[in-house]
Amino acid sequence: MIKGVLFDLDDTLYNSSEFARRARKEALKAMMDAGLHTSEEEAEKVLNRIILQKGSNYSMHFNDLVKALKGYHDPKIIATGIITYHNVKFSLLRPFPDTTSSLINLKSKGLKLGILTDGVTLKQWEKLIRLSICPFFDEVITSEEFGLGKPYPEFFQHGLNKMDLKPEEVVYVGDREDRDIIPAKSLGMKTVRIFKGKYSDNKETIADYSINSLSELPIIVEKL
C-alpha cells in the first residue's frame, strides 16, 4: 500500500532549467551594460563552461566569469549580475500549471509528501516558499543537510527514514534517469519519470511509470 510520495524539486515541480536560462541571459546583458566588454555569445560560452565544471549549486559563477574575462574581480559587475539574475529568476518563478492541483489531490488522500533534492538547504526552501507549495510537504530533505546527494542510495534511504516509510510504501517522482529513477528503484521504491526540463528528450527509462504531466500522478498512485 502506498503511504507517501517523494519528489525531486528542480524540473519536476517547476521549470528550473528554463527560468535559470532566461535569468542568466538577462544577467549577462546587465553585466555587459555595467562594463563587461565581451560579446553575449562569448560570455554565455564561458559561463556555461564554469557551470559545467563547478556545478549548478556553486555560488560564485559570476565571480569566476568576470575573473576569466577581465583578469580580475570587478565587484560592480559581479553584483550587477547576481542582482539581475535573482530579480529575473524570482519574478518568473512559478510551479508547473498542474503542480498545485496535483499536490492538493495527493494530500487529500492522506499521503505523506516529501522533497528529496540536491542543493543548499536555504536556497531550496526559498524556492518552495516562493512557489507557494511548501505547506504540502511533511519533509524537505537536501543533500547539504545529509552530506551526500544524488545518486547515492544512502541519500534516498535517509529520505525514507525521515518520513518513517518503507521503500515499498513510497512512489518517487523525478526528471532524471541517472540521479532520480535508478537509485530510487534500486531501493525498491515505485518510480515515476516525468518528462520535463532539459533531460526530457531522452525517453529511455527503467521507471515503473512515465508521465508528461503531474496531473497523471494521482491516477497512478490510486492504482497502486
Results as ranks from 00 to 15, higher is better:
Glu41His: 13
Asn57Trp: 15
Thr191Lys: 09
Ile50Tyr: 04
Glu139Asp: 01
Lys198Thr: 09
Val221Gln: 01
Glu168Pro: 02
Ala30Glu: 14
Leu93Met: 13
Ile220His: 04
Pro97Leu: 02
Ile83Gln: 15
Gly188Asp: 07
Phe195Gln: 00
Val140Leu: 03
Ser17Ile: 03
Lys3Trp: 06
Gly71Thr: 02
Leu122Cys: 00
Ile194Trp: 07
Tyr209Met: 00
Lys190Gly: 00
Val192Tyr: 09
Phe62Gly: 02
Phe155Ile: 08
Arg94His: 13
Asn212Tyr: 08
Pro167Arg: 09
Ala207Tyr: 07
Ile219Leu: 10
Leu69Ala: 06
Leu106Lys: 07
Gly35Leu: 10
Ile194Phe: 07
Asp178Glu: 15
Pro97Gln: 03
Tyr152Asn: 14
Lys203Thr: 10
Ser101Arg: 15
Leu217Thr: 00
Lys185His: 12
Ile211Ala: 03
His73Phe: 04
Ser210Thr: 15
Asp175Arg: 06
Ala30Thr: 13
Glu216Ser: 14
Arg49Leu: 13
Arg49Trp: 06
Tyr152Leu: 12
Asn161Ser: 14
Asp10Arg: 08
Asp208Val: 10
Gly197Glu: 05
Leu128Gly: 03
Asp74Ile: 08
Ala79Tyr: 11
Ile115Tyr: 01
Leu69Ser: 07
Gly188Met: 05
Ser39Val: 06
Phe156Ser: 06
Ile129Pro: 00
Gln53Asp: 15
Gln157His: 13
Pro135Gln: 10
Asn87Tyr: 01
Val170Asp: 04
Asn105Trp: 05
Leu131Ile: 11
Ala184Cys: 08
Pro183Ala: 08
Asn48Gly: 10
Phe195Trp: 03
Tyr209Val: 02
Gln53His: 14
Gly114Leu: 03
Lys109Asp: 05
Ser16Glu: 14
Asn87Gly: 00
Pro153His: 07
Pro153Cys: 08
Pro75Ile: 07
Ile220Thr: 05
Leu224Tyr: 09
Gly55Asp: 09
Lys54Phe: 11
Tyr209Ser: 00
Ile141Leu: 02
Lys162Leu: 15
Asp118Val: 09
Glu126Asp: 14
Ala20Val: 12
Asp98Thr: 12
Ile115Ser: 01
Asp118Leu: 09
Ile51Phe: 04
Asp74Gly: 12
Asp118Pro: 07
